[in-house]
Design a protein around this nucleic acid. Structure first.
Length: 752
DNA sequence: TCCATCCGGGG
DNA sequence: GTGTACGGATGGA
């Protein structure tokens, strides 16, 4: 059997259920256990007196970096652990009592998803495509907004190999539609379709937070058992979020995986299905015009709704094809189930990889910090990376150089780890901490093996033909390794980490600052102008005739000085760059493409006016058309003051998250909601409040008016709080003066 | 500056 | 489910 997922059940006795390709297996023999580091006079007999403890073994393990004798205390059922933990603590330190049972099982039995299950744990790795089903629901929202379970579900689409199905009710005459009697029948038909199709993996987009709970609520309303193949769909807590678990089927929410792990490497300015699909798949979603559009289409144009719904399921499926290989690769690397790994944050990915490795080495896993400890850690701040104040304005040309995996290479080069901290020796960080070089630390050792593996894969790729299945698979593997490697530094400073270590985190950034500053000094001495630099990168310019040649020579020189494996590399050359402030700049490549950092404003509580203006200004400035950019802004200011700006461009949108009464503060959208309510409109939590700031007097809240009731707007508010803040970031770098663009009334005539 | 509140994804 | 977990921006006081 090839392992795909695992669950546990059983009330009085443990029962591990393993499932995957080739069936299902049950193991009732694995006993839960914890470690007890007994205080001196305690005997095993005393501990055995605690009810529920069934046996004790003395074993040798490593605590931080010292060998210790600990007692492995066994129980009959996982639930016995939290019940007994407190009592056990009276006899000494209790360790590994906070490792969920299934994760414990995967580690101890050496099992990995996508690998064969054998007596000795993970056997042969299997390469195959999993039977994947994507789905998407549509519902009427004009009544309840996006509140879970409010309006009826009107369509459900499913897309898999050999299955393209849209189930609907109430709208006849659409070709291909599986028409059912009513909503209850639709939900039954959906569950039944999944049962018959027997997917190995079921995917959705934000399905943990929307589609699944929505269906569950509606099913409950109609008293339909929410189960597939007699197996209840259970909602398990994942921090603040819930994740639906279906025994026998791996459920993946692509949105959560992309948000947690992939978005840091993506260009998309938001993570809407549309945007993400066009970046990763290259397909555009059919537009139907937001919530009202769906309600309208259901009544007047069911064919359009059918197309839209099916298209969503299809692009979700295509997205799954792009994203799932990464999910599987990470799951194999971490050695936890696909269900779990697909919902992990980078910190958890590192942590579970470490826990498994610690087990293999006989190292005891530290306990998670308690709430108090974690908040204490959160309150501690330390000096981060060095960011150079940019030489403001336009520069050309630009060379961008950066350290190859700076923090991971620093950890390896200096053996930084919680278990190597010492008080003597030459290996001292600028922050003061010292690290022993005698024995490889747990963190650097783990990092090194991942780093070496990645280098090997990258070397392999160089010799391979692109566009083959094998190339793709290896590329994904090295990408997964990169993701993990880059998460180690953050992990050491992450408040909830088991291997949290402030001195290690401080040491890493202090060495990082030293190396980047050294590079800048050397560049300076070599007649480059260092325009900007952040953490691990420097941007250089010069007036030399052989700029590119100079940069390459410079790289060669500095790399002979740097300790292995720290290395500075060339990222690329740019035609021009505009530098605003730290973290805010834009670069132009010779093919016309842009790299924009820190200037985007994507939140919906910014008006379209501000968003659009900023985009145009960035483009004009990078094409060296600064005056045109300023003129454009001035014309927008003039338009605003002349009250010629269309009101739609000025709408600010904020969501109401709870009932009006429970707000302590009278924010603008709360005030507007109140007004709407008094006017007889139905107000509910989750509703999007759209408003415009009008003239009159008082605070912004007092001047905010529902979008449909606004007949006028406060021009000065939009100039000062929307337009100018958005464009000034770019313009002040190229000599634009806020005062000049603001054009006080008296100056207005002078300009136009 | 601090505190409270909102954003994200989904229809 | 042997765990309870975000991180950044904005507005009001």
């Amino acid at each position: 059997m090839i392992l795909l997922g695992a669950d546990y059940g059983g009330d009085s006795k443990t029962k591990v259920v393993l499932y995957g390709r080739g069936g299902m297996a049950i193991d009732s023999d694995f006993l839960p256990y914890v470690y007890l580091l007994p205080e001196k006079e305690i005997t095993q007999k005393t501990v055995l007196k605690i009810g529920r403890v069934i046996k004790i073994e003395e074993v040798e393990r490593i605590l931080l970096n010292k060998p210790v004798k600990v007692w492995k205390v066994y129980f009959k059922h996982p639930k016995d652990v939290p019940i007994t933990r407190g009592e056990l603590r009276e006899f000494g330190q209790v360790l590994e009592a906070d490792i969920p049972f299934i994760r414990r099982y995967m580690i101890d039995k050496n099992l990995k998803p996508m690998f064969e299950i054998t007596d000795k744990g993970a056997g042969k790795e299997e390469e195959f495509k999993l039977r994947t089903l994507a789905f998407d629901i549509e519902c009427l929202t004009e009544e309840g907004g996006l509140e879970i379970g409010k309006g009826p579900v009107i369509m459900v689409s499913l897309w898999g190999e050999g299955l393209q199905k849209v189930i609907g009710w109430g709208s006849a005459d659409v070709k291909g539609l599986t028409l059912v009697e009513d909503e209850a029948a639709l939900i039954r038909e959906f569950l039944n379709t999944v049962r018959i199709y027997k997917p190995e993996v079921i995917v959705g987009y934000n399905s943990d937070g929307f589609d699944w709970p929505y269906l569950k609520e509606r099913a409950k309303m109609f008293k339909i058992p929410f189960e597939i193949d007699k197996k209840k769909i259970k909602f398990v807590k994942k921090g603040r979020e819930m994740a639906p678990k279906i025994e026998g089927i791996v459920n993946v929410d692509l949105y959560i995986f992309i948000r947690n792990l992939l978005s840091q490497y993506m260009k998309s300015e938001n993570l809407k299905l549309n945007t993400v699909v066009s970046e990763l798949v290259g397909e555009e979603k059919i537009k139907i015009g937001g919530g009202k559009g769906i309600d309208d289409a259901w009544r007047n144009n069911p064919q359009l709704l059918y197309d839209y719904s099916l298209q969503d399921a299809k692009v979700t499926y295509l997205l799954a094809n792009e994203v799932l290989p990464m999910v599987y690769t990470l799951s194999k690397l971490v050695g936890q189930t696909i269900f779990d790994v697909s919902r992990m944050s980078p910190g958890q990915v590192v942590e579970w990889l470490l826990i498994r490795r610690a087990h293999e080495r006989g190292i005891l896993t530290p306990n998670r910090p308690g709430y108090g400890e974690a908040s204490e850690r959160r309150s501690l701040s330390y000096e981060g990376a060095f960011v150079k104040e940019p030489v403001k304005g336009l520069h050309a040309p630009i060379a961008l150089c950066d350290f190859r995996s700076l923090y991971p290479t620093i950890i390896m080069a200096h053996n930084i780890s919680p278990d190597t901290i010492t008080t003597k020796g030459k290996n001292q960080a600028p922050s003061g901490a010292r690290f022993s070089q005698d024995v490889k630390g747990f963190i650097p050792e783990t990092l090194q093996s991942l780093f070496d593996e990645r280098m090997e894969l990258k070397a392999k790729l160089k010799k391979m033909k692109r566009d083959t299945q094998e190339f793709k698979a290896i590329y994904t593997q090295q990408n997964a390794l990169k993701l993990v490697l880059n998460s180690f530094y953050g992990y050491l400073g992450y408040a909830n980490a088991r291997w949290y270590n402030l001195d290690a985190a401080k040491a890493i950034t202090s060495w990082g600052r030293k190396y980047i500053k050294d590079i800048m000094d050397i560049a300076d001495a070599n007649k480059f102008l260092v325009v900007y630099g952040d953490t691990d990168s420097v941007m250089l310019t010069s007036e030399s005739d052989d700029f590119e040649g100079d940069v390459k020579k410079f790289l060669k020189n500095v790399n002979t000085e740097l300790p292995d494996p720290i290395r500075l590399e060339l990222d690329g050359f740019f035609v021009r760059g505009v530098f605003v402030t730290k973290k805010r700049y834009a670069l132009l490549r010779d093919d016309g493409s842009l790299v924009v950092k820190g200037l985007e404003k994507v939140r919906r509580d910014w008006s379209d006016l501000a968003r659009g203006a900023q985009e145009i200004v960035i483009k004009l400035v990078l094409e060296n058309r600064v005056e045109e950019a300023k003129t454009h802004v001035k014309s927008l200011v003039k338009q605003l003051r002349a009250k010629e700006t269309p009101l739609e461009q000025l709408v600010i949108r904020t969501q109401l998250t709870k009932s009006i009464e429970s707000y302590q503060q009278m924010a603008p959208h709360v005030k507007v909601a109140k007004v709407l309510k008094e006017a007889g409109k139905r107000i509910y939590p989750g509703m999007l409040i759209e408003y415009i700031v009008t003239p009159r007097s008082g605070s912004i809240s007092e001047r905010s008016v529902p979008k449909d009731l606004a007949k006028d707007y406060d021009a000065e508010y939009y100039v000062e709080h929307q337009l100018l803040p958005a464009v000034m970031r770019v313009l002040e770098a190229v000599g634009g003066k806020e005062q000049e663009l603001r054009m006080k009334q008296t100056e207005l005539d002078k300009w136009f």
